[in-house]
């Protein structure tokens, strides 16, 4: 799914410093925050919405579609399972450094309850002009403008740069989908590309990948079947092998997940690959012009 302004959002960890800052920013932009969770503050109000002891408690009186977690890594598993069992359709998991075994258990709970997990370690999602769910500068009009380009990114900071480049070239976005920098994420790059391919408001897709894993190769396999143009940039061309480049998932190990392999897979699938992020808007214009012709 793509977050819309009618979607009801629950904020787990709403009363913390970051929870408060970003909930306020989301509310100001138009995101429909209906409640928050903090077991110690249950029964009170925060930022004009009721605070509950758990997502399951919240669901009883305040139904929600999306839950977003501002929860530290060691407590993330319990919070995520709570949100899944409470019936969240989408769970946006910002937390970085959640133990991998906990992440596996979260994915089992999500599958059992029909919850779409975005992340862990995502910066969230932005639907320009409607709402945002996460820690992206969705409210910054120089970065995000409504339009018809869908953007998928493993990295929040790179995604911000790419949307800025698009906006500077007059190309607004239908949706920004941050999938996260962890190795075991719920919604993969390929999943997000598929979602945007099915979206009637999206004309073309930008895929921001990085070294490590096989997310770009998987997305390439799907892109092959698409009519909408796809343009990609892959970060990490100059990164040395065997080192984790910040993200737990960004590592070239045993010759796997390297830049040339990813670029070749994307180009073989008909995806235009930009050398630098500033090259993306030009390639998009070319592809859109030739697909319209």
């Amino acid at each position: 799914m793509i977050p819309r302004k009618h979607h009801r959002i629950l904020v787990q960890g709403i009363t913390g410093k970051q929870g408060t800052f970003w909930t306020n920013a989301m509310q100001e932009y138009g995101s429909r925050i209906v409640g928050g969770v903090n077991p110690k503050r249950a029964g009170t109000e925060h930022l004009g919405v009721p605070v509950f002891a758990s997502a399951r408690e919240a669901a009883k009186s305040t139904p929600f579609d999306i839950s977003i977690m501002f929860i530290p890594p060691m407590m993330a598993k319990a919070a995520a399972i709570d949100a899944c069992e409470a019936g969240a359709k989408m769970l946006v998991c910002l937390t970085e450094h959640i133990p991998a075994h906990d992440v596996m258990e979260m994915h089992v709970a999500a599958a059992a309850n029909g919850t779409q997990i975005v992340g862990p370690n995502t910066a969230g999602l932005v639907t320009p002009g409607e709402c945002f769910v996460g820690i992206m500068p969705g409210f910054n009009h120089r970065v995000f403008q409504p339009g018809r380009i869908g953007v998928v990114s493993r990295s929040g900071s790179l995604g911000t740069l790419v949307c800025l480049n698009l906006t500077q070239q007059g190309m607004g976005q239908s949706a920004f989908y941050g999938v996260g920098g962890d190795p075991m994420i719920g919604t993969t790059s390929a999943d997000a590309v598929r979602i945007l391919d099915a979206d009637a408001d999206t004309d073309a897709i930008v895929l921001c990948g990085e070294i490590g894993g096989s997310a770009e190769e998987d997305a390439a396999a799907y892109a092959k079947t698409m009519k909408k143009p796809v343009v990609a940039f892959i970060a990490g061309r100059q990164s040395p092998p065997g080192k984790k480049m910040g993200h737990a998932g960004a590592i070239v190990a045993g010759g796997k997940g390297d830049y040339p392999t990813k670029r070749a897979a994307l180009e073989k699938a008909g995806v235009a690959v930009a050398d630098t992020p500033s090259g993306i808007p030009g390639l998009l214009k070319e592809r859109l012009a030739s697909s319209a012709a």
Partner: peptide
């Protein structure tokens, strides 16, 4: 800031 942007900055320097 951010792993993706940092890697990208390295790539663009080299470009």
């Amino acid at each position: 800031n951010g792993a993706g942007l940092t890697m990208t900055t390295m790539d663009v320097i080299s470009h």
